[in-house]
Structure formats: structure tokens, C-alpha cells
Computed example of a mutant assay.
Amino acid sequence: MSEPMSAGKFQQVLVGAGLTVVGVGEWRTHNRNHKGPWGPVNGVMVHHTASRGSAATVRICRDGYAALPGPLCHGVITKDGHVHLVGYGRTNHAGGGDGDVLAAVIAEKALPPDNEHDVDGNRHFYGFECENLGDGDDPWPEVQLDAIARAAAAICRQHGWTERSVIGHREWQPGKIDPVGFTMAAMRERVRAHLK
């Protein structure tokens, strides 16, 4: 359990992980903090966007849409492995999820099945939306998978967390399927390797 990094520190740790980081507009102050608290933070959540085209994906994740205002994450990781920062603070990415999963993330233990919808995840997780259709056919380039792992590991290192603090949306909220196309167990192994 930690206080969130400042926006500047967040950017710094991502750049320090060897990532290409692109700030989009006034990302440092673009958030949903008026809807509730941001923090304490407990982990990193990975999503797929179910969209195609980097520019359109970044725009959607920054601005949101009528039913779900943006920002929809903190960073968008596009197919080329670039991390586009679209918001900082509370963002609309995690939604409600399972309190038992949150407890396991905090304890850094194996995750239980997500079968409840009783905790506000937007308060507790850094979120990365990753450009992919999520249909099981759209490929995940190695440079993108590596960027996801590097970004998650950089945040974990800063907060003193292990790879067990990195989860997929599908592990948090009943009914969610993302990310599709790789397993979170494999992604956590990548994160662990970077943390070494």
C-alpha cells in the first residue's frame, strides 16, 4: 500500500525503464479526482483496448466517450511499444472489482477467483490500456509486450512491489476478458525478470 507517485515521478520512472514516453496534452492534471480519492495505490492493471489504430486509440483513451468519460487509463501502450500518457490521478479504467482480489494483491499472494463487484478499483490501481483488438487473432508485437512488462516493473520497483502486484482486468472484475492474447502469468514472469 503506497501513496501514488507524483505525475513527474511517474513519467521519470517510465523513462528510466528505457521506454519511449509521450505526454498527451495536459495529462498531468487530466483525471477523475472529483469522483473520489486516488490512492492508496496497490498495483498495476493491464487492459486491451479493443480498438485499432494508435492515434484513434490514444484519443479514445484520453477523451473517453459518452457513457464513460476519459481518461480511461494512465498510459496507452501502442503496438510500437510507446507509452502515451493520457491522464494522471483517478482514471476510469478498473471499475468495481473483487475485494478478495485486492487483498491478495496487497498481500502479494495468489489471486482468488474474481466473483464479486464490491471495491472501487479506480482508486487503487495504475492502469495501462494496450492497443489490441482483443479478438485472439490480433498479434501482440514483442516490442509491445516488453513495454508492458517494463512499465509495470518500473512502477513495482518504485513502490517496492513484486510481480504479484500486476494483474489483468479479467482477474479483477467478473465478466471482463481483457487482456486477450497472452496470459497474465506469462506477463508476471516478464515483470519478474525485469525486477531482477
Rank of each mutant, 00 (worst) to 15 (best):
R62S: 11
Q11E: 15
E26A: 15
D63N: 14
W172G: 06
A55H: 07
E3R: 13
V83C: 12
Y126Q: 08
V105W: 08
Q158L: 13
V76S: 05
G16M: 10
E129M: 15
A94S: 12
R90P: 02
D100I: 00
F10A: 12
A66D: 14
R190F: 02
P40N: 06
I177T: 15
W172L: 06
V180G: 03
G18W: 05
P69E: 13
D120H: 10
P139F: 10
N42Q: 13
W140K: 13
L102F: 04
H84L: 04
A151P: 05
K9D: 14
P37W: 01
L102K: 09
I155H: 06
G64S: 09
V105Y: 10
P113N: 04
M1P: 13
P139K: 11
P4H: 07
R123N: 01
V143L: 10
R59V: 04
V41L: 10
H34K: 13
G81T: 04
P40V: 04
W140R: 12
V143G: 03
E171K: 01
N92M: 01
G18F: 03
Q158P: 00
N132T: 03
C73S: 14
D135M: 07
S6P: 05
P40L: 07
V101C: 03
T78C: 12
P174I: 08
